[in-house]
Design a protein around this nucleic acid. Structure first.
Lengths: 208, 208
DNA sequence: TTGGGCCCTGAACGGCGATTCAGCGTACCG
DNA sequence: CGGTACGCTGAATCGCCGTTCAGGGCCCAA
């Protein structure tokens, strides 16, 4: 899968990051190979030296960005004591942020592009489905942990995970698009409200 | 805004519908003017005869499709007796459907395209925000109605509307992308579960 | 110093696709 | 029956952009 030396691997990652940034900045349709090359001060030919085609590059970049996100969150989760605290971290991580000081844009900007492409790229679609499943599993395992500790009411963890993940997606879209009625702080509040309502201890909910 | 006669208006709508269908079929980036023209058996020049540019056409088509959706739902709502029934209609309308027998694709397929474009087209962004606000207002008014009738617990209708709208968006994305773990029937169930949980009569929830 | 291999680039190439434009047919008007 | 307006098109334009390719520099091993 990867060429020989470690240096090459780093170059690939650099290109993938540049691709993500360019898509975030210019949008999927307006992203040209030349833009990506400019981003890292290289020639367009370099990009095609490392990747077989533009389509393949873009698909890989979208997956790459997601993996980075998941790794990051996974790390942050370990710093949390309670399951409730972990859920808050998951929620916080889902809020679209302004670009980083170093210029790195928020990963959220790439989701619509990933969805759009997934519809016609089976490989990307499969990767996306897998990453989403991982994300929901992470939510579910936090919930299981909280239920076991008596922090949360008993719920069907997998159902709750789908609901929370969907809610966060929907809210994040609004925030990302700068909807005047839904900003990041309102997103946080509404997501936390949902979690409280659904997991409030003392009210067990049962499936039929 | 519109050219003179009624015939022309119909032609415009035909082009907008063809544009929506083409985007749904081929994806935003892969949609060419020639594809849209083929769809209605006309020449590419015709498209540019009615619209000033491809970008303007696409933006208008995305808005148009949404308006049609909202009109349709508005009509369906009038057939419902209770507020609860109305919410079920809203949920049902939000589920991505297979293409219509006449070949019309589900309107949901256009949302990722609309989000992607909104990021760089302020006019489209404004239209999208307005339509979303309308949608949430529709949800909120149903909730108000249900609360007034004693069907629902007392909640902050505007908050609930944002949550439900976001939840439906997030779920619909998964369904649209044929996620193996979230199909339309599970989407319906999880959305209805949320509504029941949040609006269950007898448990008033108050804001801080 | 030389040879070879790896990264990388400049410079085409080739085709595509948005946009333009001059003009054709037809229906309707007078 | 001429004239005009309108709806539409074929064909050309023109710039862009993905992709290719022949090599050029640089580092390292011998």
């Amino acid at each position: 899968m990867s060429p020989r030396p470690r240096l090459t691997e780093a170059r690939r990652d650099e290109i993938l990051a540049a691709t993500s940034k360019t898509i975030a900045d210019r949008g999927l349709c307006e992203t040209r190979i030349a833009d990506i090359a400019d981003e890292i001060g290289a020639s367009p030919a370099l990009i095609l030296y490392y990747f077989p085609s533009k389509a393949a590059l873009v698909a890989e970049a979208l997956v790459y960005q997601d993996q980075v996100f998941h790794e990051t969150v996974k790390g942050e989760l370990e710093t949390a004591a309670s399951a409730a605290a972990k859920l808050e971290i998951l929620i916080e991580a889902s809020c679209p942020k302004p670009p980083r000081p170093n210029g790195d844009p928020d990963g959220w900007l790439l989701w619509p592009a990933a969805w759009e492409m997934s519809r016609h790229d089976p490989t990307l679609a499969a990767a996306r489905a897998r990453l989403d499943e991982t994300w929901r599993a992470q939510i579910a395992s936090v919930v299981e942990e909280g239920m076991a500790a008596g922090e949360f009411a008993r719920v069907v963890a997998s159902d709750f995970a789908i609901q929370l993940a969907a809610l966060l997606d929907g809210l994040a879209i609004e925030v990302m698009l700068r909807d005047p009625t839904v900003d990041a702080s309102r997103m946080r509040k509404l997501a936390n409200d949902f979690v409280e309502m659904a997991l409030q201890p003392g009210f067990d909910r049962h499936q039929p």
